[in-house]
Amino acid sequence: MTYRVIEAAALSCDPPPIDPAVATQWLVAFLRDELRVRRRMDRAVIGLSGGVDSAVTAYLCARALGPRNVYAIRMPYATSSSASLDDAQLVIGELGIEARTIDITGAVDGYLRHEPDADARRRGNVMARVRMVVLFDQSAKLDALPVGTGNKTERMLGYFTWHADDAPPVNPIGDLFKTQVWELARYLGVPKLLIEKAPSADLEANQTDEADLGITYVRADAILSRILLGYSDEQLVERGFTAQEVSLVRRRVDGTHWKRHLPTTAMLSNTAINEFYLRPVDY
């Protein structure tokens, strides 16, 4: 008798999976609880860029709070792509949420005219921070909580402006990798155009995230998810990732721990906040 041989499947190099129905149910419950129960607010305000992250956030907020309680603010700068405005409009139209466009060119240039030599990175950071100035002021005006749109991939890679994209007090998608956000977007019915276009911070013309990062989101998420489980670079290479892509991701993660924390405060007393004096965020 000959015995059939069954081999274990090669270890996966795929990005982490997601069940979008389960994730949606959980995130809708989270948003309702966090806004209504804990903060006693009925409304959310979101910076809607025309990209998939803020679109998914808007869809989730509309499900959780009702479309009339969601305010989308489009904040273009002079060089922003007009396609981004159109794509954001698709989301606004589909969901029937409240919307306003506030051009940030005047505010940004008001400062940057004193800094004519600022390079693209500095200019991009100024734009991102001005958008938060606008968003938080709109929050006060509208009595609506700013809801963040940063995903786990950009948070892990440090690919965001500190105290800007990460500033909103509530973020439903910050523990989802970019590839998982895409899947969630498909499930929620986000317009295909937004899911399929190349992700971009739209801070410079023709910029794409993947060109900036030097790696695709599919590969980055596959590597990141395994780094987070404790795998060594050696193990990742054994699994079929290249040494270059592993080291690129590892360098970015290791170089940006500070971006995922509050500012470092010198401890001088027995009552240092968050060292000795500890209270949970929802206490």
């Binding site: 015995y3 069954i6 274990a8 499947a9 489980l229 795998y231």
Partner: peptide
């Protein structure tokens, strides 16, 4: 990692990465 059907004689092959235990 790998599994066999119920009613057929067969050989299963798998490569175990023993570092997985500590992780």
């Amino acid at each position: 990692l790998v599994s066999a059907p119920a009613t057929e004689p067969c050989i299963l092959l798998a490569d175990l990465d023993l570092r997985e235990i500590d992780l």
